[in-house]
């Protein structure tokens, strides 16, 4: 079979991706850049500047940044420990982190309500131990917790993958040449895992920035993130033009993130799979 014939094999997918990936994105841009009469307008995009929308965007940015940093700080040491544990089955580690996904995402997040409530499980334990109780349900803190909980696996897996690919000889060489633990980490391990870190940041930051479910379930109904605003424009207000315009703003952050990833991870090494 020659290579032209092989290329033809891709036709179903190429057509599929054109119809279901490229065209829909173009439609978001079309709706976002037009008004109800179909005339060109920037108003939908510029409406991000209104106090209500910009507040939702800033809050979403703030909470997702905090969550991303917490995920990174929790995941890196964890990945290092897991890597050194010599679990010879790489797939087992992956499974442990993917397994929770088989329990529905909404139920898992809802379970935090039960855990965090004023008279919930965690507070009962704290009261029993005579410790001060934790009242974070329906606050931004609970949203951050929900984000960290849901997206932590997406930070651990790419970092773990990057770490497990490091050649032990490289580290041994650094030690032989007189580097101490800290120097080995800063000069060898950390730079080699940058693609994994960047990939992890993307996998956590984007879903956290755009979520509307976590803020709905754990933040009560009063806290609106940009994702909630977009969702409401589509499902309740039925203002697709405004919703699309705000989605374009969201996509700017996604593109920015993709550009940063491309700069740091040229070979696509930091994959989750």
């Amino acid at each position: 079979m020659n290579s032209t014939k092989k290329k033809l094999l891709g036709t179903p997918y190429f057509i599929w991706s054109a119809i279901f990936i490229v065209v829909p994105l173009c439609m978001v841009f079309y709706y976002g850049l037009t008004d109800k009469s179909g005339a060109f307008t920037m108003e939908n995009i510029l409406s991000i500047a209104t106090p209500e929308h910009s507040k939702a965007l800033w809050l979403a940015l703030l909470l997702s940044l905090i969550s991303t940093v917490i995920c990174l700080l929790l995941a890196y040491p964890l990945a290092m420990i897991l890597c050194k544990m010599n679990v010879n089955q790489h797939s087992f580690i992956v499974l442990i982190f993917i397994l929770p996904m088989w329990m529905n995402f909404l139920l898992r997040t809802l379970a935090w309500q039960t855990l965090l409530e004023k008279t919930g499980v965690i507070n009962s334990i704290l009261t029993f131990l005579h410790l001060p109780t934790l009242n974070i349900i329906n606050t931004p803190y609970a949203i951050v917790l929900g984000m960290v909980y849901n997206f932590l696996p997406f930070m651990v897996l790419p970092i773990y993958n990057a770490l497990s690919k490091i050649d032990v000889n490289v580290i041994n060489a650094a030690r032989d040449l007189g580097a101490n633990e800290l120097q080995v980490f800063l000069k060898v391990t950390l730079p080699l895992t940058v693609p994994g870190i960047i990939s992890g940041i993307t996998m956590v930051f984007i879903p956290a920035l755009t979520t509307f479910v976590i803020s709905n379930l754990l933040g009560g109904s009063k806290i609106l993130l940009i994702g909630n605003v977009v969702e409401q424009e589509f499902t309740q207000a039925s203002n697709w033009h405004l919703g699309s315009g705000l989605s374009i703003v969201l996509m700017l952050f996604i593109i920015l993130n993709m550009v940063i990833s491309a700069v740091f991870d040229k070979d696509g090494e930091g994959s989750v799979l």
Binding site: L25, P207, T210, F212, G227, E231, F234, S247, L250
Partner: peptide
Amino acid sequence: VVMGITNIPMLNADIVTGISLMLLFIS
């Protein structure tokens, strides 16, 4: 180009993928 397009649903926010498909199906 093809891999770039393939990456879009992975990297794009679910909410944007969702509404873009919704707009497509409506049209």
